[in-house]
Design a protein around this nucleic acid. Sequence first.
RNA 1: CGGGGUGUAGCGUAGCCCGGUAUCGCGCCUGGUUUGGGACCAGGAGACCGUAGGUUCGAAUCCUGCCACCCCGACCA
Length: 491
Amino acid sequence: MAENFTSRAKDYSQWYNEIVEKAELAEHSEVRGCMVIKPYGFAIWEKIRDTLDKMFKDTGHSNAYFPLFIPKSYLNKEAAHVEGFAKECAVITHYRLKKSPDGNGLIVDPEAKLDEELIVRPTSETIIWNTYRKWIQSYRDLPLLINQWANVVRWEMRTRLFLRTSEFLWQEGHTAHATKEEAVEETEKMLGVYSDFAEKFMAMPVLRGTKTENERFAGAIDTYCIEALMQDGKALQAGTSHFLGQNFAKAFDVQFVTKENKSEFVWATSWGVSTRLIGALIMSHSDDKGLVLPPKLAPVQTVIIPIYKNEEQLEKISEKVQQIKKLLEKKGISVKYDDRTTHKPGWKFNEYEFKGVPVRIAIGPRDLENNTLEIARRDLLTKEITSQENIDTKIENLLTDIQSSLFNKAIKFRQENTHQTDSFVEFKELIENKGGFIYAHWDGTKETEEKIKEETKATIRCIPLNIVQENGHCIYSGKPSKQRVVFAKAY
RNA sequence: CGGGGUGUAGCGUAGCCCGGUAUCGCGCCUGGUUUGGGACCAGGAGACCGUAGGUUCGAAUCCUGCCACCCCGACCA
């Protein structure tokens, strides 16, 4: 399956595309810019979704569902929001088809034109805030902490599987609060949830920060983000959390009565991560042998492959495997026993390697005789013979070790690809030749950011949280600056 | 949406310049021998050549439109 697999060094984009396709994560649909997420890819998404869903509920949120279609006029109510999304909206104009008069196929029935056109949600702020108006009367109704798992559509010009598709799956949290402080706290809390998830489950280190005006969400006062570094030295925004201020409350007239019996606009947040995380996962850990998955998100954590010469041997091995499988499952480890007789062991080894299964156990007649097993780990591509004694604890520890080893490796990669400079000449050189994150001073203006982007293609990925204050001079304009920001070329 | 490229069996391809319905490999099916890192032998099935038109006695091949994908830009999670 993975013969003639392109290496990262040869063509990084092609390497990525081939992993997605050959590891059976997703494929292009018949509709431009859309993807079919295949069972193996969707299983990863389910792991991501289930883990995050629990984290959201643990922080007090409830799930709800809002409609796919939004009246066109809603989008118009928040000025910055329209500006940001109008150019990429799919629009519903009719609600019926009819037989073509010439008898060939179907046409849009001109008599079924909608009075008010609908758009397919690019995000749900507008319809949700229009609904919240009815739900919120008093400070007693606050905070309102809601999340929804949904698909959204943004008509993209250029798409890539998982990283940018016209339709994608995501979750969007939308919360309403009585005070600004509480809303900011919520925004930061959810950013924390995202960075915990990225680092502990995806084994992907992220920078936490805020966006500059240029990169901010359409309609937000502040956009917080987590930024990860991919193996090609480009940054990927992996999640965002927005402090929306009272922008949407004012646009949709969502007011509440305080304890003091005064009417005030509520304070809002929204936050989301999408199927893009799967792209991030692929580009964080995978290698020239294919996908590498962190144990905590791998649909199959351990695969067991029998090696045998005849039916009788297979039977004996299978018996043993069932015992081992039970032991492992008791520890909460997901196990797949691949006893297909249609493929040889070597073929299976390669298949699971390509699909990124963290641990592989091989068991043959020699192992039955010696009470041993061959254990191979995907991340380091090493294998060893070990006794069957305490196999459940061994595998459990091995999975833990792989999880942290992947994270450490990614941290190391990020360290090696993070630079600091005070010279624009060196900055350009770093961006051009090395990529990665670059910490540099910036004068805080939109103009400078745009000029730097024009000249180097690098953008400000974030203004890191908790960064030391340090007086310096903007790398481009020379004007004074109080702290460094992070630049990189981005996805 | 602009510039460049590609589209032939499930996948990768030859053929296209110089028109005569298609090559090879992998995979698939059947039988046998195999099984500790992508097995071997024998036989077999599978393609209206992306799509719609045009030129022609005849089009994978020449011409035009459209569609999809890839790369580079602008835009974006």
